[in-house]
């Protein structure tokens, strides 16, 4: 735990800088209260709130990502033992990766990386 003291101090210092900027704005800014505006839409008032159900067309990419991403959990510890375990570790990890890359190729054919 001792080791995190520097990082915590840095976090504190950043918070001080951010608060300092806001304080500078409050003391030297033109107006303390923010301007309330309609969302800017090129010169006409918007009809609706923008925060509505947003249909992301790339949602199939998220699923490929989530599955692929699990592999990273193994890969970081793997880097530490490659030299020690030897060729078996490399073969094993790359079997793992090649299977995933095949899945990515399949996903590419299915158009998962496009705004379908």
């Amino acid at each position: 735990m001792e080791s995190y003291s520097g990082a915590l101090a840095l976090l504190l210092a950043v918070v001080v800088v951010v608060l300092g900027l806001y304080a500078a704005h409050l003391s030297a800014g033109l107006a303390r209260t923010p301007l309330t505006s309609l969302p800017y839409n090129g010169g006409v008032a918007p009809k609706e709130y923008a925060v509505s159900r947003f249909h992301a067309r790339w949602y199939s990419m998220t699923m490929v990502f989530l599955a692929f991403d699990i592999e990273m959990l193994f890969m970081y510890p793997w880097t530490l033992v490659v030299a020690q375990v030897g060729a078996a570790a490399v073969v094993e990890m790359f079997v793992f990766l090649v299977v995933l890359v095949l899945a990515v190729v399949y996903a590419w054919r299915e158009g998962a990386f496009r705004w379908a």
């Binding site: 067309r57 949602y59 199939s60 699923m63 490929v64 599955a67 692929f68 699990i70 592999e71 193994f74 079997v95 793992f96 299977v99 995933l100 095949l102 899945a103 990515v104 399949y106 996903a107 299915e110 158009g111 998962a112 379908a116």
Partner: peptide, 20 residues
């Protein structure tokens, strides 16, 4: 785990991809 992840990717795309 690797075939499971493979199956996850393929399965989720089969079920959910808007255009195959």
């Amino acid at each position: 785990i690797s075939p499971v992840l493979f199956a996850t990717i393929v399965g989720s795309l089969v079920l959910a991809a808007p255009r195959g």
